[in-house]
Amino acid sequence: MKQPFTAWLAGAWAVFEKDLRLELRSRYAVGMLLMFVPASILLILFATGQEPLSPRIQSGLLWIVILFAASIGLGRSFVSEEDRGTVLLLRLHTRASMVYAGKLLFNFLLILLLETVAVFTMIVLLNIQVAHSGLLASTILLGSLGLAGATTLLAALIARAATRGPLLPVLLFPLLVPLLISVVAATRHALEGGFGWGASGEALTTLAAFAGVVITAAVLLFDFVWND
């Protein structure tokens, strides 16, 4: 007989492992993100030309690309379950919070990959200088936690709604305004340099608090989305 918590962890891990295996089989989400991010950054490059961009605009563009990529790439995580008719099986074998945790972990890793690709593409194509890489890394880590928490819940909502495609950005963007403001401020500090950890402390604590509140609310509300 396992302990309840280890059983829960095992269940969440199983959901994550299933998603990972399916993704490695089809490589749909990863492939789409790997195409979407460089394509949109190239578009930015063509649109802005040789004009040097200030760190503020660079960090704004970076996060807008990330938000759009996340909102179209992660919407599928629950839709595919509905399409394949595997929802009932998942519902029978796992508790709602396990499904949420497993999908959250998968989406978090997907967003981290997407952000790494976005940052390196921008460094190469748009000549971004990173002055404070530790700050940038922690901003990306905390930002993607909040982003993944919100997207995972809303993707589950969308999967229950009838028209699935373009709804996720509409639902997601207004809720992410606080995240976007803090994350852009911290990224700008990381690109400009000369600010250090102290100046960005407020933005980082806001990001951590946002991620905490979003994930807590999502875990509480996920039951109502998942179970009929």
């Binding site: 819940l153 809303l154 909502l157 639902l171 946002f210 509140v213 979003v214 609310a217 509300l221 109502f224």
Partner: peptide, 12 residues
């Protein structure tokens, strides 16, 4: 669910 989730995010 969406309404409550929004209520959690807005105070930020």
């Amino acid at each position: 669910v969406y309404n409550l989730f929004a209520a959690a995010c807005v105070p930020f």
